[in-house]
Design a protein around this nucleic acid. Structure first.
Lengths: 231, 231
DNA sequence: TGGAAAACTTGACCTAAATCATTTGAAAAA
DNA sequence: TTTTTCAAATGATTTAGGTCAAGTTTTCCA
């Protein structure tokens, strides 16, 4: 949790969530906000806590996770420019999930008071936030569908295809975090993920460490049909 | 899909989502909205379709469900006063889920144009909707946690406890729909639900048809700890 | 650069849950 | 009431996935 710095309004517009905001609002946000670098694994917010800041990753990747007894699961991975825990911030209710960077990340934070004030006074800001909240809600609904409607083999195949597309569709990409987190994200154990990778490795993909190379895309597409309704 | 009628502003305020709105907004809504009675099983909206109305059940219960190939699952059950598919309506993007009444239901519908116009012009209306959207997002997140962190026995025990509380905590209630839907909602097969009920029936509950009687609440609470973080 | 510590893989085994087949029970229709 | 139909329960079996226990590989430092 090193260097605490501020940013200029233009940098803020680079974040998807703030894209459509007028200069004036961005100036306000840049004054109140702060940016910090956080190492991987450092817990930023805990489930059950009352929200104090609206957090938006600027670089890196944030894992949202939760515990129940001695079990733990990954709920989502938040990329730069998206928000997280927005529901808690808008409703002023406790977080339902904890958060920590999966890799070293820069995170922008905006105090609740600023967010609440702008919500009341600035319709465009309100619209920006509820649009983002809509994306969040739909993201969780998609996760639920992915989990209830697909087997773990299908989830892995879909994840590989989707991640390749995000990375430019070159048929080669590198997993950006450790495989145990990927397993948890996909709703399986690390052992099972290993075996499922091994099953695909026979024919459809090559995998060496974290580098994945898609050999027979059609085979993956046959295992899991990507659809806008889930992916 | 019988009788199409209108309502008065006061009736609208009875719906949780519209609770905090000024008379003026309710008048507008009541003019544009309509109310219809829909029989159980009649599909109201389909996943993939563009939204045309904001729907709010007034009586009964709406099931949100989705298909993937030949599989189908229940995603949520919407009680009177809550909204559904609000993300699609606010983002003007296709529904991710289909909807149908689980029992005969009265449903209020408001045209997209009215909703979009009020969103721009009426900050309180916007706030009412994003508050509801926040609840939706948190609801799906909770469902995801329930599914990933609990076994099916735990999910059933938690569901029984929670449903009893909703019904007044008397230790007796009636399942409001068929068990195959409950099974799908809880992420299991009907056969498995039957067996799981049978396991609880030995000691902890009595069940006859759709009537459930909790015998040893402490035993259920030991199986599944209800927590605001999930339930 | 050697060696400890993680991370990951593999194998053997077990358990939860799905599937298939049949029976029972209850509600609706004749 | 009797017959038909559908929902639910039960039994037998299979399968997906979890658990436990070694191995193996990679990463990270001292």
């Amino acid at each position: 949790m090193s260097g605490l710095l501020h940013f200029n309004p233009t940098e803020l517009r680079g974040l998807r969530i703030f894209q459509a905001l007028p200069e004036e609002t961005l100036v306000e946000l840049s004054k109140a906000g702060r940016l910090e670098s956080v190492p991987a694994g450092h817990v930023l917010t805990r489930e059950g806590e009352k929200p104090d800041f609206l957090h938006i990753p600027v670089t890196g990747m944030i894992e949202l996770f939760s515990r129940y007894g001695d079990r733990e699961t990954t709920l989502a991975m938040i990329s730069p420019g998206a928000s997280y825990s927005l529901g808690a911030v808008l409703l002023i209710e406790p977080y339902l999930e904890s958060s920590r960077p999966l890799v070293p990340s820069d995170i922008a934070s905006f105090p609740m008071e600023t967010v609440q004030r702008l919500l009341q006074t600035d319709p465009l800001f309100a619209k920006a936030l509820y649009t983002e909240l809509g994306r969040t809600a739909r993201g969780y609904l998609r996760s639920l569908k992915n989990l209830k409607l697909r087997t773990s083999l299908e989830r892995l195949a879909a994840w590989i295809l989707k991640t390749d597309i995000i990375n430019g569709g070159k048929g080669r990409f590198r997993i950006g975090f450790d495989k145990r987190t990927l397993a948890s994200h996909l709703g399986m154990t690390p052992e099972n993920l290993s075996r499922t990778f091994a099953a695909l490795k026979k024919q459809d993909i090559e995998i060496k460490g974290r580098d994945i190379h898609i050999i027979r895309r059609a085979a993956l597409e046959q295992i899991a049909q990507l659809t806008h309704m889930i992916d």
